[in-house]
Amino acid sequence: MPGPGPHLMYAMGSGVAMMKLSNGRFGPHHTLTYTVNAFFGPDIGSFSEWLGSFFSSSGSALADAIHDPVYYFLILGLPLTFLYSWISRFSFRLGILDSFSAVPLSKRQCFLLIVAGSLSHFFLDHLFEENGRSKMYTWILSTGWWKGRAPVNPDAVFVVGFLCISLLVGFIYINRVKPVKSAINQSYQSAKLILIIASLYCLWCASQIYWVTPRRAPVGEEADLGILIFLAMYFFLPHCLCIMSINPKDVDVAQLPL
Results as ranks from 00 to 15, higher is better:
S106R: 13
R108P: 00
F90S: 15
A17W: 03
G226Y: 00
F90D: 15
S48M: 14
S142E: 07
A150E: 05
G95W: 07
P28Y: 15
Y71P: 02
R215P: 01
I66E: 03
S166A: 12
I246R: 10
N247F: 13
P42R: 00
L94A: 15
L141Y: 05
C164E: 13
G15L: 01
N37H: 10
R215G: 01
G220L: 09
E49R: 11
A217K: 06
I172H: 00
F123V: 10
G95E: 09
S245V: 08
S14D: 01
C242M: 14
E222G: 11
P69H: 05
E49Y: 06
D224K: 15
Y10K: 02
P248V: 11
K249S: 05
S22V: 06
P248E: 13
F40Y: 04
S91Y: 06
H121T: 02
P257Q: 12
A116V: 03
G144F: 09
I114Y: 08
A61F: 02
L141M: 12
I197F: 02
S99H: 11
L21T: 08
G220P: 10
M1S: 12
I75V: 10
P214R: 06
S134V: 08
A38N: 06
L141I: 09
Q186P: 00
V251Q: 08
V251F: 06
H67Q: 14
P79E: 03
P4C: 09
P151W: 08
A206W: 04
R149C: 04
T143K: 06
C202Q: 12
H7P: 02
L256S: 15
L97E: 11
A191Y: 15
S22W: 11
L21R: 14
S88Y: 02
Q109H: 12
C242I: 03
Y201I: 07
P69G: 06
G117L: 03
C110K: 05
S58Y: 07
Y201E: 09
A61P: 00
A116T: 01
P79M: 10
D155L: 15
E222Y: 12
I184S: 08
N153W: 13
I140T: 02
A183V: 08
G77H: 09
Y34R: 00
L113C: 11
S53Y: 01
H30Y: 08
S106W: 14
V251R: 09
V157C: 10
L112V: 10
P218F: 07
A38K: 01
T35Y: 00
L62W: 09
